[in-house]
Nucleic acid binder design. Sequence first.
DNA 1: CACAATTATATTGCACACAATTTAATTGTG
DNA 2: CACAATTAAATTGTGTGCAATATAATTGTG
Lengths: 159, 159
Amino acid sequence: MENITTPQTSASSAKVLNVDLQLCFALYSASLSMTKTYKPLLAKLKLTYPQYLVLLVLWEKDGLTVNSIGERLFSDSGTLTPLLKRLEKIGLIQRQRAIEDERKVIITLTEHGKLLQTQAADVHTQVACSTGCTLTELKELNSQLILLRTSLINKLVTP
Amino acid sequence: MENITTPQTSASSAKVLNVDLQLCFALYSASLSMTKTYKPLLAKLKLTYPQYLVLLVLWEKDGLTVNSIGERLFSDSGTLTPLLKRLEKIGLIQRQRAIEDERKVIITLTEHGKLLQTQAADVHTQVACSTGCTLTELKELNSQLILLRTSLINKLVTP
DNA sequence: CACAATTATATTGCACACAATTTAATTGTG
DNA sequence: CACAATTAAATTGTGTGCAATATAATTGTG
């Protein structure tokens, strides 16, 4: 689309414009496409993708606080509180204040919530197939995105 | 985190679970981080990232219909109509029905909207720097994400 | 030309994402 | 111990993202 003649040192030149711009959009649109791919599969379990992420965290380690879940998923109480209330409403989790520190809310899976893990197992596989990527590709892309995310988050806190 | 012993043919094994799971989440969280990186930069221009994307499209080619913009950005009227109304409200674009086909709404940049392009030029560069990637890396990641997106979208229409 | 089908946008409703503020509990300090 | 500071969630408000539906204009067909 445009010819980049900048040397391969760092992405600081004005010529970078379109490349980085394209990357951001590629990231943004690929992420939305991924969510759309998950949607019909998760709909069978009556879940949204963010709700599914919370369950993944809880299936790995149950009884976490809202904050711990938020740290794992890079989101805060403004997002999590209403989401968790919905998960509670459909009977997948329980929310209860910690006895030793009543500021904390402990999230626990119900039996139904635990059982859902088995049904959800297929979901991953189907999405992985839809990516059309090999395992190696998935793993490489994964590492690159994690590096990118780390870089972006670090620049956020210390600009 | 877990040992994958599946051969490198396709991502269809049950062992894939956590890897693809990580990729989807890496994509999701990297995309959100990117938006957060843009946020303070775009706030100076009183823009959100999706609004900025619409302007990018219009700066490239003005006078498009809602649909054309939607095709470019992979989004529909449900998202675009309110977004475009906000851009109109802050005086960056104009919305007017096409005279030859009154179902269509033509989006045109105002003078203010055109002038904003200059001020927005810095934004790309700053975000590119925050990625901590070289140009080569940005370009490669970009291509991979486009491939991934294409694959996902194709699987969506023909499952 | 009437009228069903199609097309383009708008509307509605729900679920995030996130900044900013509030509330309530706990901790630290004099 | 009182009280300011801190911490953990919840709340509020704005802006998407998207499915489903509605509305209005245009096109295709008999």
